[in-house]
Amino acid sequence: MNKSRLEHLLKEHHRDAFIWAGQCCNYDYEEAKEVLQQTYLKIFEKKAVYKERAAFKTWLFSVIRFTAIDHIKKKSTFESLDRLNIVVEEQIEADQVNYRKLLSHLPERQQQVLLLSFYHGMTLAEIAEITKLHIGTVRTHYERGKDSLRTLILKKRNEQI
């Protein structure tokens, strides 16, 4: 794929990519900026190469996810876990509607599977490609995640009444 086509595709998916990077960084959008920069650098320097086996967005999301994992690992060696937790709490407090807070009650895998499916409109096969999980495992996370989230939504609704 030539450079201009690659740049065009990245530009097209930039917004979704930034939001996904934020979701991979516990909604810390400053971290998301760094992760996205590192991702683009990997792509332009051909450390991550798109081989057109999957949809471009699927591949891009996969690169972002692994870059975020590496970034958080490196970061956590310099910052204590307490500091990271404070950042997450601050982000959740700032979120008025508390969608993120509600989601944060689910295990991380379930959160990611539901976000990829319902927020980003991906199929289970695409999610399996991004998370590098077996499609059966993805389906399990998907079903369990939906059940847990439904329970949380109902609980929240009952509290409001």
């Binding site: 008025q96 509607v97 969608y99 976000l115 319902f118 927020y119 939504i153």
Partner: peptide, 11 residues
């Protein structure tokens, strides 16, 4: 769940 995520997207 779809409504939940649709509202999240809106936010």
């Amino acid at each position: 769940i779809k409504d939940f995520f649709a509202e999240m997207r809106k936010a």
